Simulated assay, not measured.
Amino acid sequence: MIRRILLTAAVLSVAACNAPEDAAAPPESAPAPAPEAPAPVAGDVLTANGFGPLRIGMSTAEIEAALGPDSNPGAVGGPDPDSCDTFHPTRAPDGLMVMTNNGVLASVWLTRDATTPTDRGFRIGDEAAAVKAAYGAAAVVVPHKYEAAPAEYITVWATADHTGPAARGIKYEIGGDGRVQAIAGGGPSIEYVEGCA
């Protein structure tokens, strides 16, 4: 008889363990979804650090290995090409120029024929108002040196230092129509108004 009582108690215990949850009990909450990771930046966009395989600080030889030599070696990229030069590498997208200072990549420039975007998705022809809205208080706006407003320069620094070798930023040159007409990404040379001149 004691065996029967013990066996019955064991069966009831197992049944209780496998019984469905009480309907009045609150359901377990689902785990919170993981925060969305930022979308990866494509390699062929202009950033404060360069473009695609180009990184600020590379030597001219490294630029040429990555995107080819100057597509127009007879053109003068500056009054003293050894100290400052600008050129379009043969395998670079249309409208993309590189600037070297003393044989080192200082900045990458997008000119009027460029369709390459920045890491924020801006391109030549976009409205200045959209650029300012995207960057907010980080955007430093100054008047254009040669054109009347709404022409201006919008510069966004990625580093606290704006003048040293580690400085990195992007500058949007806005034309008299209020649209982006050139973009530069890189070190302090992005603030040059007349290229190497």
Rank of each mutant, 00 (worst) to 15 (best):
E194K: 11
V193A: 14
G186C: 03
E28P: 07
W157Q: 14
P38M: 01
Y172M: 01
D126S: 11
G169Q: 05
E62L: 00
V41T: 14
R168H: 14
V142Q: 06
V193C: 04
E173V: 15
A158L: 05
I183E: 04
T111P: 00
V140N: 13
E152L: 00
E147T: 06
A133F: 13
A24F: 13
A158F: 08
D94K: 12
A30D: 07
L105T: 06
Y146D: 13
D119N: 13
I183T: 05
L54S: 12
E147W: 03
L7W: 05
G52P: 09
G186Q: 06
S189C: 05
A42H: 06
A139M: 06
L6I: 15
Y153P: 02
V180S: 10
D177Q: 01
S13H: 04
D177W: 02
P73D: 08
V180T: 02
A134Y: 08
A137V: 14
V140W: 03
A15Y: 03
A151C: 11
A167K: 06
A138G: 07
L67V: 10
D113P: 00
P165E: 13
G121N: 08
I183Y: 07
G176S: 14
A65F: 11
V193F: 08
S13E: 04
S71L: 05
L7Y: 02
A133L: 15
V14N: 01
P35E: 07
K132L: 12
P93F: 06
M58T: 12
M97S: 08
A42E: 14
N18V: 14
T118Y: 11
P93M: 08
V98Y: 06
A65C: 07
P26D: 10
A16I: 11
V41A: 09
P35L: 04
V142N: 04
T118V: 12
D22P: 03
G125F: 10
G187Y: 07
A130K: 15
I183F: 09
A130I: 06
P150S: 08
T86L: 09
D113T: 07
F122N: 06
G57E: 06
R91P: 00
P93C: 09
L12W: 13
D113M: 01
G77T: 03
V131D: 04
D70C: 05
R168D: 13
N49F: 03
F122S: 09
E28Y: 02
A39V: 14
A148C: 00
A92D: 11
V131H: 02
G95K: 04
A149I: 05
P117M: 10
P26Q: 09
A75P: 04
F122K: 11
C196W: 09
L110C: 05
A129F: 01
G164N: 09
A151D: 10
